[in-house]
Amino acid sequence: MIRPALPRWVAVPAAAAAVFLAVPLLAMLVRVPWVRLPALLATPAALDALGLSLRTCVLTTAVSLVLGLPLALVLSRGRGRWASFGRILATVPMVLPPVVAGLALLVALGRRTWLGGTLASAGIDLAFTTAAVVVAQTFVAMPYLVVSVEGALRSARDRYDVVAATLGARPTTVLRRVTLPLVAPAIGSGAALSFARALGEFGATITFAGSLQGTTRTLPLEIYLQREVDTDTAIALSVVLVAIAALLVAATARLGRTGSVPS
């Protein structure tokens, strides 16, 4: 199908928008101390931050898949008030200001709270641990997976799952062999988005988990600290963060394209 041409004037605000988005990123690339970049990134603090970020984001993505995927499945089948309520609940953490997410976690799971105290007496003390970083990241990142997969499940028109069930396949088999493969691209892009969101997580981590090299100080927290100490290091680390985020977004776009092609 050939779409009608766009009016020419659209190009002007469109170009302005593109420039507006590109200029800050380009400015940072210009400002990067390229010659000193390897030395700046090879410091123990920088490597610890990068390593911790990657480890926690992998864990966060895994937890998001294990818990978020079933939630997406249940929500996609839900009807009525409870399902709408569940969908809102799954979306709100996406739009919360980061510090608010941290405060919410603090009043729910802090050491002085009922839940936090109960966990602590069971030997699980989250305060200032790497586990707290994963909790903070999962709280803000899992919704991306849930929303992305739930949307795909609801818009899947073909009733392959119904056919499979009619042919005698058990629910788990239908889920494993039919339903999940159909939304695989959405699961992939949702997981990539969750990973990217977890990588950029800052406010909830600094409020809830603290900041200690190698334990809780992820890449964004290290950038925040270096901004006060050494701007060059902060910019060098920012470029790494931007590069990883760009790669993830590119991967997501690729998955999205393969998903739209009918198989």
């Binding site: 603090l106 802090g110 050491r111 002085r112 305060a127 200032f128 600094i206 409020t207 603290g210 900041s211 200690l212 090299q213 334990t215 809780t216 100080r217 927290l221 925040y224 600290l225 006060e228």
Partner: peptide, 21 residues
């Protein structure tokens, strides 16, 4: 042997006020 090294002194304060630290 701190469990956290904060960028802002007010963040240290907040963590003690809330009893996290």
């Amino acid at each position: 042997h701190p469990v956290s090294e904060e960028t802002k002194v007010t963040d240290v304060r907040a963590k003690v006020e809330t009893g996290q630290a």
